[in-house]
């Protein structure tokens, strides 16, 4: 179920004073089962890009292939694409509407035209997958805490059994505890189900620990596309475009400037601890 983005351009609001290139010649290949982070500043085009992947926004130019088929083909089934490439938006408040949690999660699979039994089975499974407590199934989704709402929103998309799950800033507005829980949940989902996950975020620290590949977007273009360690080596350039590498990267850089022989590779606190201890031991 590889997703291929082939020279995609998107012009926002053409022939108006606001017209600008929101996506500029994007080429990407997203293979099965990868855990990807898309990082960018507000307005970098990262949200626009992911909305192309499930056909919500149509490219001005270029093609997108899902499983070998061009999604812009006339007889391509857009509805099927949307169930296969699930997209969870930033604020769960934008999608919760049913009287109870369970019915809300049922909305997606019901739209796929499945039998009632299958719909309920999938919804139950999805709520279990996101670790939602059984006793809250018949609560109104509006009375839940921010973190719980987010879980319901994710379950609502998971219940469609997508092959690719895209999450647009899933931690926005959550406190550190909620943030950690949601990110942990996503990591676990990826491990257990082998689903492809694309995490959109503006926080490097959020994704550094979790993803295996980082795509940095800037002004509608792909600026870097590599494993986290390689991307963080460009911390000076990242800073220029309003992004920052994890704080540890800067500490290690400062230590190197002061003459401590630590490597550039450390990006987490654990790695940095080992690295500093090693450098001091060999001094």
């Amino acid at each position: 179920m590889t997703l291929i983005v082939d020279h995609v351009n998107y012009i926002y609001d053409p022939d108006s004073p606001l017209a600008h290139k929101a996506l500029d010649d994007i080429c990407l290949t997203i293979p099965d089962g990868q855990f990807i982070g898309i990082i960018g500043h507000t307005g970098s085009g990262k949200s626009t890009l992911v909305q192309h992947l499930n056909g919500l926004v149509t490219a001005t130019e270029g093609h997108i292939y899902f499983d070998g088929e061009d999604i812009y083909d006339k007889d391509f089934d857009k509805k099927k694409l949307r169930s296969q490439v699930g997209l969870v938006f930033q604020y769960p408040e934008h999608q919760l509407f049913e009287i109870d949690v369970f019915s809300d999660v049922c909305f997606g699979p019901k739209n796929l035209g499945l039998e009632r039994k299958e719909v309920e089975l999938r919804s139950y499974e999805a709520l279990r997958q996101v670790g939602f407590p059984d006793e809250l199934f018949y609560q109104s989704p509006f009375d839940l805490s921010g973190g719980q709402k987010r879980r319901v929103a994710i379950a609502g998309v998971l219940a469609m059994k997508p092959k690719v799950l895209i999450l647009d800033e899933p931690t926005a507005g959550l406190d550190p505890q909620g943030r950690e829980e949601i990110l942990g949940l996503i990591k676990r989902l990826q491990k257990e189900t082998g689903i492809t996950i694309i995490l959109v975020s503006h926080s490097m620290e959020d994704v550094a620990e979790y993803v295996e590949r980082i795509i940095v977007m800037n002004k509608g273009k792909v600026m870097y596309d590599d494993v986290p360690k390689e991307v963080f080596k460009h911390h000076k350039e990242l800073e220029e475009v309003g992004l920052a590498a994890p704080q540890v990267t800067y500490i290690m850089e400062a230590l190197r400037e002061k003459g401590l022989a630590v490597s550039k590779e450390a990006t987490t606190v654990e790695e940095a601890t080992e690295e500093i201890l090693r450098a001091f031991a060999s001094k």
């Binding site: 919500l56 949307r82 938006f89 934008h94 469609m160």
Partner: peptide, 12 residues
């Protein structure tokens, strides 16, 4: 935004 979020869940 809401419209997009619901279309992503298969709403028509």
């Amino acid at each position: 935004k809401i419209m997009k979020a619901q279309i992503a869940r298969g709403a028509d």
